[in-house]
Write a protein that binds this DNA or RNA. Structure first.
Length: 299
DNA sequence: AATTTCGCCAACCGCAGAATT
DNA sequence: TAATTCTGCGGTTGGCGAAAT
């Protein structure tokens, strides 16, 4: 005898989540806690399978998630951890509070891998690329550059090659290069202490919001900030994963009702409203809330 | 202005191990 | 102990927006 089937496979919705679905899921979990995912969609009134709900919550809706690009420091951590752990994204993510394995995996595949290769480092082994690999990489870069400009003459190609060579570093220099070479042009240079719980209400001017967003994701970026005088009591440690600083918001079983405000057009308002809130929600000293983070307003 | 290509990322898929009956 | 489901994980892909043509 086993368990019940996790969900009905027929008639379930797939694809991007709507604001309304997000609202239902968030409301349900914050009211009832995170328990049996199989039961969640049914109880929350969602036509999704439990797995889909879990993924949506884990990767996107969890209030403790940071949003926006990884900081240079976080990138460096990812690189270091990847060198030790390989593609064990969940383990890597456990060292980066507020980041999900999916997010780190995506960032690795889209940004870090390219940069490592460009620097002559094999992203798989974290060792310098072989001469053949380096040449292949240079060839790629040059052909890419050539494609961009149809009028490239030989001298330009040579220059491009020289430029590529100049980016390839001596292994002894790699450590410094990793720090200086990553994402400085792509991420806001914000130290963790600078992004903790800003006080000013957010306007939707998220300058670093470069990613494509679904409708439902857009409103999350625009949620308000914690109040300036909001403090996290030191006795409110909800971490259950001793290997990380992961937050366990759902350990709190006395949540009041949270509501995402839906306007008449069915769009989600910029506020996440909740009443009878248990005062300390999250406590994590390394946690930061930047403009792309979930933010909250006490009512 | 219209079309094509590229880059990014949210979400899905399938597997493995843990948990439950 | 076996059968079955649940959960977590890593790999992959589809769709969207931006950039290039």
């Amino acid at each position: 005898m086993g368990r019940q089937p996790c969900c009905e496979k027929v008639g379930l919705k797939k694809g991007p989540w709507t604001a309304e679905e997000d609202k239902k899921l968030v409301s349900f979990i914050l009211t009832n806690g995170q328990c049996c995912w199989r039961a969640v969609p049914k109880l929350a009134g969602l036509l999704r399978c439990g797995k889909s709900c879990r993924l949506r919550w884990t990767n996107y809706l969890r209030p403790d998630l940071k949003r926006g690009l990884l900081s240079p420091h976080e990138e460096q951590m990812v690189i270091d951890l990847h060198a030790q752990l390989g593609n064990r994204w969940s383990k890597i993510a456990s060292h980066l509070p507020g980041r999900t394995d999916n997010e780190i995996k995506n960032h690795w595949n889209t940004h870090i891998k390219k940069k490592l290769r460009k620097m002559g480092i094999d992203p798989l082994t974290h060792k310098p690329l072989s001469t053949a690999q380096v040449q292949q990489e240079q060839k790629k870069q040059v052909s890419k550059a050539g494609a961009k400009s149809q009028q490239v003459d030989n001298s330009t190609v040579t220059e491009a090659k020289e430029e590529e060579k100049s980016t390839l570093l001596d292994p002894m220099e790699m450590e410094d290069a990793n720090i200086d070479g990553f994402c400085v042009d792509e991420v806001p240079l914000i130290e963790p202490h600078e992004i903790l719980v800003p006080a000013a209400p957010s306007t939707s001017s998220s300058s670093s919001s470069s990613s494509s967003c679904t409708n439902s994701s857009k409103f999350l970026e625009d949620l308000h900030y914690f109040p300036a005088d909001f403090e996290w009591p030191s006795d409110y440690t909800t971490t259950t994963d001793t290997d990380s600083n992961n937050l366990s918001l759902w350990d709190i079983d006395d949540f009041g009702s949270w509501d995402l405000l839906i306007n008449n057009d069915g769009q989600c308002d910029r506020r996440l409203a909740f009443d009878s809130l248990p005062s300390p929600l999250i406590q994590c000293p390394t946690m930061g809330f930047d403009q792309n983070s979930w933010t909250y307003e006490l009512l």
